[in-house]
Amino acid sequence: MGDVSIFLQHLTNGVSLGSLYALIAIGYTMVYGILRLINFAHGDIFMLGVYLTYYGVTYTSLPWWLVFILAPLLTGFIGILLERVAYKPLRGSARITILISAIGASFLLQNLGIVIFGGRPRAFPVPQMLNHVIRLGGVSINVVTFIIPAVTIVLLLGLTYFTTKTKTGLAMRALSKDYETASLMGIDINKIISITFLMGSFLAAIGGILWGSRYPQLMPLMGSMPGLKSFIAAVVGGIGNITGAVVGGFILGLGEIMLVAFLPRLSGYRDAFAFVLLIIILLVKPSGLMGDNVTEKV
């Protein structure tokens, strides 16, 4: 292996990890952008999405691609339910109250996961199609490594179109500015918030499925670390900004891989890297890299 191909391999590894963070961060940032609510249960919704997919593929005779669509939809409805139970009754109360409710929801989902799915890990059934390796010169790339960034970009474009060009998107943006005025203008707030949670949770589940295809180990607590990292990615990019979330995700993924690759002595600190990055951003540019442009906020 030459030095160039080693570097290219590291780069590929970083892009692959970064696009996963990006994908999960999009859902995070979307909910925040509209409701000004940090949905700490996002990582656990992600976990539910992976488990639903696991059960769908393993215990039903449905083709895997259909499960890959149905499970995220179902997860989306769980997201709506979560909002109804944990956030809606608190709408209008202090932000800290809702934040604590979000943390509570996160613990509840994790522990429900342990009770229902069991503490022992399960193997994610990776479809054969997503699980073969392509070798380009000295660089080895799993197909799923191509698929993840592609899905991320497609969803990014789709969401940007949705929020800027459709009527529901317009309503979402109005809601994010001032939701009392928006409701006076005849926007059905409950419906728009439900759609936001449906989409956010759908995205979390898609992220979960791709995460599972890359790292096929399922555990009830699997959502917490990716959830935190994606939250950091969203903050680094400028929370509320969808493009920023993608940029933040890539920075985080590439940074982590390069840290372990070139400073192997620090590999035990890869999680710390994410948090140090968060602290630096909050000190230097609290609004995030792309957070200044208020008009772009969803």
Partner: peptide, 20 residues
Amino acid sequence: MSSYNTGDQDFTAQLTNVKN
């Protein structure tokens, strides 16, 4: 000689160095 933490899911950076 490389290392990781319990809970890590991605080992590609360490493994790329090992392969080398």
